[in-house]
């Protein structure tokens, strides 16, 4: 597992580069994409499309692999149930996404574009995650 953090660093950097190149670190572009009743900017459809096509191929490759390149097992979500929590959570997230035009990835990536404002967003987001954790009786204890 010693090299897994290198894979993660490379993945995160590629991810951040893609967000910056695709315009997702610009809240104006993100909100423009959500503004389908106004001055719609379709750019993010191309971002999503490009990412989903590449990942669809990756899932095909994954299906033929017994184990990942580093590590011994795939640790992937296997739930299929549609719950009120899933939909309610997504609705809350989407509302926040619409207000400021930022989701988690671009929030971190924007730390080098507009540090003060991105930091405020990221800290509020982490606070929100913490509030959920404190209120959720089913959370698993942190294992160290």
């Amino acid at each position: 597992m010693t090299r897994s953090w290198l894979v993660a660093l490379l993945s995160g950097s590629l991810f951040g580069a893609g967000l910056a190149l695709g315009g997702m670190v610009d809240p104006a572009r993100v909100r423009g994409f959500l503004d389908i009743f106004g001055d719609w900017d379709p750019t993010l459809a191309f971002v999503m499309g490009g990412a989903v096509i590449v990942m669809a191929i990756a899932w095909r490759i994954q299906a033929r692999m017994a184990q990942p390149l580093i590590g011994t097992t795939f640790a992937l979500p296997d739930r299929t149930d549609l719950t009120p929590r899933l939909i309610g959570g997504a609705a809350l997230f989407g509302t926040g996404w619409g207000i400021a035009g930022l989701c988690p990835g671009p929030g971190f990536a924007a730390l080098v574009i507009e540090p003060a404002k991105a930091a405020v967003f990221v800290m509020a987001m982490l606070a929100g995650m913490l509030i959920f954790r404190l209120m959720d009786p089913s959370h698993k204890a942190l294992q160290e």
Partner: peptide, 12 residues
């Protein structure tokens, strides 16, 4: 927005 995104992504 940050609060909503943080809470919402954990719930969802």
């Amino acid at each position: 927005a940050g609060l909503l995104v943080g809470i919402g992504t954990r719930i969802g």
